[in-house]
Amino acid sequence: MDFTKLTNWTVRLLYLQIAISVIGLITGAMEHSVLRDIQNGNFVAETELIQAGEASDTRQGIVGGCQFLIYIVSGIWILRWIYVASSNARDLAAGAMKFSPGWAVGWYFIPFLNLWKPYQAMKEIWRVSANPRNPDAEPDSGLLASWWFFYIVSSLSGNAAFRLSLRADEIRELLAANFATRVSDIAGIPLAILFMVVVRRMHANQELARAATDAAEPGSIVSTTA
């Protein structure tokens, strides 16, 4: 299945993730400054403190809402891309694959197992895409390992930020939630960049493998020029 259009849109959405993460870092730093000012008693009047706090909450609410929307839309698109990439790999593979397209996506939703199973599925797709006839001969990819490292950091810090923000009442708790959120935003930038490279390389490898398979089929026409 040709998934060039799907790949191009996935890359565009990853650029959007990078942009919203950068914005989140900026507004997160602004929120941190406000919280520190409140903690250190730098506001001369209560009305000034209230105004600064409300402005910060509104700003973070808007950015947080945009982040949620972008990550939901891009997440659905990325999972669709993984499903198609896995399906294509199965068509190219000379032997059976361990992970089905459904489970290549489904493992992301299984608690605890989602810490390593999706990575194993992606590694299998990567190897088959690079070498359909002998995927086991393909070495482990440092690119995939780096992508998965930042995925884990971003996921765990994002989850921590959500839980901390739910029960944050005091300034120190709000600062902890702010710190976790900024860690998640920082990790989200290399995460999106690395996955962008993975998407492009895997797409290119599958296109090359498909072209080689088509050329090797009996009855295929190979044209030559003098």
Rank of each mutant, 00 (worst) to 15 (best):
Q206H: 01
N205S: 14
G41E: 06
L69F: 14
W116N: 05
G28E: 11
Y108K: 04
R201I: 01
T7E: 07
G53S: 13
M202W: 08
L164A: 11
S155N: 11
S141P: 07
F109K: 03
S74E: 08
T181K: 15
V222G: 08
V153T: 08
N88Y: 04
V63F: 10
N42C: 07
I125H: 00
A177V: 08
V183G: 12
W116K: 02
V153E: 08
R167C: 04
D214W: 10
I72V: 15
T213N: 11
S155G: 09
W107C: 04
E124C: 01
F43W: 09
G53A: 09
T225A: 15
W148N: 01
G61W: 13
A121G: 05
S86G: 06
T4L: 09
T224R: 14
T225L: 13
A209T: 06
S129G: 06
P118S: 06
P101R: 12
F68D: 08
A168Y: 07
Q206R: 00
M196P: 02
H203E: 12
E46R: 10
R182D: 15
T213E: 15
T58V: 10
R133H: 13
W103F: 08
E46G: 04
L113K: 04
Q51G: 07
A180L: 12
R127G: 00
L144I: 02
A121M: 06
I152F: 01
R172L: 09
F112S: 06
W77R: 05
A160P: 02
A52I: 09
D214V: 11
I70H: 07
I82P: 00
G41D: 10
I23W: 05
S56K: 00
S86L: 03
V63I: 15
L208K: 12
L79S: 00
A45K: 13
A89Q: 05
E31F: 01
F179V: 15
R133M: 11
I152V: 14
S154A: 15
S165L: 11
V153R: 07
N40V: 05
N114R: 01
T7Y: 02
L194G: 00
A45N: 10
S155F: 14
K98Y: 03
W103P: 03
A204R: 08
W81Q: 00
S223Q: 14
N134V: 04
T47M: 12
